[in-house]
């Protein structure tokens, strides 16, 4: 099977403090991967590196290429922050995505907005924080990308919307594409993972097939997460 992501000895140091330290992993096509770790563990740094938003040391290849224009055509990224232009209408953001991404499905985005009761004529600044996140998620998931990088996709939405979003991710998920979901809300999202990666202080402390890890440890991913990061969470 061809690896969509190849990462070897990836390191990023901020002011002598490593945010990522010798990270190694490969990701195959057609997997949903949970990137798990507490705040400050390096999840966002890793996703930023995969998007070409950071210079790093080591090897990082997406579909055989270093992050750049070519990889950005096939990567759909949902950052933790809202990157929407507050002054425009929702439909303008749809046109923006349609202009720049050949794989953007405009009709699908419109239909999802309707499902979530979001008026495409509304200005972004008029939307609630949760609805802004939903718009952003719809934009990202309406692309037929090879790789989806979702940084805390359910972090800012209400519990009722979480299930809808997770179902949406599964519904939109194409067996040929790979999804990486970074989160610390594991209980809600655990059911969708094929693989998990535990990141602690910039280093991978556990990775593998989610079912195998559950069987090997006799615990759910959520229970294991609490065990591994017990100190990190309480300290």
């Amino acid at each position: 099977m061809t690896s969509l992501i190849e990462i070897k000895d990836l390191t990023k140091v901020y002011k002598k403090k490593p945010a990522l330290l010798n990270v190694n992993f490969t990701a195959e096509k057609g997997r949903i991967i949970g990137l798990l770790g507490p705040n400050g563990s390096g999840k966002t740094t890793l996703l930023k590196a995969m998007n070409g938003l950071l210079e790093t040391e080591g090897t990082l290849l997406i579909d055989g290429s270093r992050p750049g224009v070519k990889t950005k055509e096939i990567v759909s990224f949902l950052p933790e922050r809202s990157y929407l232009d507050e002054s425009v209408k929702v439909k303008r953001m749809l046109s923006f995505f349609k202009d720049f991404y050949a794989d953007f499905d405009y009709d699908k985005a419109k239909s999802l907005l309707k499902d979530m009761n979001i008026d495409e004529e509304a200005k972004i600044k008029q939307l609630s924080k949760g609805n802004k996140e939903k718009v952003q998620l719809i934009l990202v998931l309406s692309r037929k990308a090879k790789l989806y990088l979702l940084d805390e996709p359910i972090g800012g939405v209400d519990p009722a919307a979480r299930d809808y979003i997770l179902d949406l991710i599964l519904k939109m998920y194409d067996p040929g594409s790979t999804v990486i979901i970074s989160t610390h809300l594991i209980t809600d999202v655990e059911r969708v993972f094929d693989d998990v990666i535990f990141l602690k202080e910039g280093e991978i402390v556990l990775k593998g097939d989610a079912d195998t890890i559950r069987e090997d440890h006799g615990k759910s991913i959520d229970e294991l997460f609490r065990e591994v990061f017990q100190c990190s969470l309480s300290c």
Binding site: N51, G52, L53, K72, V75, F77, S82, Y83, L84, Y101
Partner: peptide, 17 residues
Amino acid sequence: RNLLKDEGYLMFTLPVT
């Protein structure tokens, strides 16, 4: 604002140089 604040996450992930 468009490049170096939050909107930069969109602009710098567009398939452009």
